[in-house]
Nucleic acid binder design. Sequence first.
DNA 1: CTGAAAGCGCTTACAG
DNA 2: CTGAAAGCGCTTACAG
Lengths: 331, 331
Amino acid sequence: MQDVAARAGVSMMTVSRVLSKHHKVRESTRQKVLNAVESLKYKPNISARSLAGSKSYFLGLLYDNPNAGYVNQLLFGALKKCHKKGYNLIVDSFEETSNEAEQMVHSLIEQSRIDGIILTPPICDSTHILEALEQAHIPMVRIAPQSNPQRSAYVCMDDFKAARETTEHLISMGHQKIAIIMGPPDHGASRLRLEGFKQALEDHNLPCPEHYMQEGLFTYQSGFESAERLIDNEDRPTAIFACNDDMAAAVISAAHKYQLNVPADISVAGFDDSPIAATIWPKLTTIRQPTIAMAEKAVELLTQSNQEDPRKYILDYEFIRRDSVAKIPKS
Amino acid sequence: MQDVAARAGVSMMTVSRVLSKHHKVRESTRQKVLNAVESLKYKPNISARSLAGSKSYFLGLLYDNPNAGYVNQLLFGALKKCHKKGYNLIVDSFEETSNEAEQMVHSLIEQSRIDGIILTPPICDSTHILEALEQAHIPMVRIAPQSNPQRSAYVCMDDFKAARETTEHLISMGHQKIAIIMGPPDHGASRLRLEGFKQALEDHNLPCPEHYMQEGLFTYQSGFESAERLIDNEDRPTAIFACNDDMAAAVISAAHKYQLNVPADISVAGFDDSPIAATIWPKLTTIRQPTIAMAEKAVELLTQSNQEDPRKYILDYEFIRRDSVAKIPKS
DNA sequence: CTGAAAGCGCTTACAG
DNA sequence: CTGAAAGCGCTTACAG
């Protein structure tokens, strides 16, 4: 192949240099090579490349997240970017037993000689895994880590800001009695969402009574129970912000149980834009995490050589306005 | 590496033969090699292998299925098996535009020189793609194809039997008034599920009135509307079999709306065991497709050389009994 | 059943 | 900025 490409000008050495960027090649010869590549529809052979070079052109993606939708988007973004960059992705997932974690990391490293690895939550906070990777000198990028931010490059979104914006949207629709169903307190992002919620209320001098703050566990059932407590109360809120979509979906179901129409009688906002958000009815107004973009960015960081970049990237979320929030009826 | 392994006995040629199976090697030397490999923790280099050999050790997985959970499981199974077999998986997904389909297939083939490809529903029924693959002589295995069964090896499950078993479970719980919310009529599996349902009723001499057969579209909303029609009827069924979980989830929500308790007042069964099935409350009794196993089998078929096998594999589903079905109350 | 030679398609130093 | 040589770690024929 190279042989043929070289035919259109120079030595295959030069072709190699053009293809792998970085190197200084005169612009004119560069163009000649590129043209030849184009017209011959030449595709470099990854195997030969990784065999000859020091790089393997393999990247790892490790996950133990049970949320299929989330993992899928991550995968999608990473795959897309890898494809473009000429890399391959080795995907591995953990079972529950975190004991085998280090072992798996080691075998992944040895077997595939990966050039870098992407760690997703919650596994990205495992100190064991961080250590194993550091010792092996494998570059890593973490997605939304909750701890040890200085320990690797990472990409994340601004949960605080997203929660504040959601709450502000509720306020702008005339709601004054807004309740929140929180996530588990030990979950980092969950805490930030609560803070964002509080900030918005404070900014608008709105009260935040104790019984409007329900503790959820990110599960549908916990959301359902919290919603019942909120609805079956003499001081019923007119809007509920659930810290994830599963709980928001449960709120809608609970509202149905109490003959309440969503959003006419009560508004509901979620968080995540998980598959259920667009499945149920009414469709959920929610926050879409930049999951795909985060994965893409992670691959980009791993495939670039200049490690001196800022090591922290905060990507933009998207506020998805659908059908579960309405103006408060004038009473 | 080979060099080191050879040190423990013979030429690297022999080591290669041992590792790649198939070849005739004396059992005693075979063992020596295996021991050496073991003690040196030798891992073959995939790149070198694919460069020297004619095989690329790459398999493709193509999907355009919007159902994240399904794709995820497929991926999981395929990845696991590929890993074990020393293969890599190149994953690609389509956007909506099916025009680019063939083009993508071609670039996938050219770029990665894949040894075989796995096609998932609904893309596995695209005649365009089948043609492109056949012309390129790429071995393929399809997952649950709905048409042209003779055109490739494939793996699937028995939708008819699964639906019949589900219905029979409902009957065994004392239900006699059982309704079905069907899927779209042009969906092959959907039709089989309906047939299985009918068969079970017939076997038990149970009626199947017209108004107990609601047409759904596999969407939550269509399920909700069908459920309302079923519930808000003087001849209300005591059990509803929804042909997928999204619709079954909607049935539960609709039941709540009518102050009906699931499963005390009305039983609900779903199909798929999609993420929503275990998310909502009560959790759905449903059918788990052997998704992971299907993907594993597909990889196995693609990595085996003996193509003379039966080309059709029907894998066992699993009946998942959870909380949405109960005995009919004695009235 | 086993081995010596050549080569897969690229990249790494090393020279110019 | 560009080229000639050697080699990455394996497997393919080809001999014995």
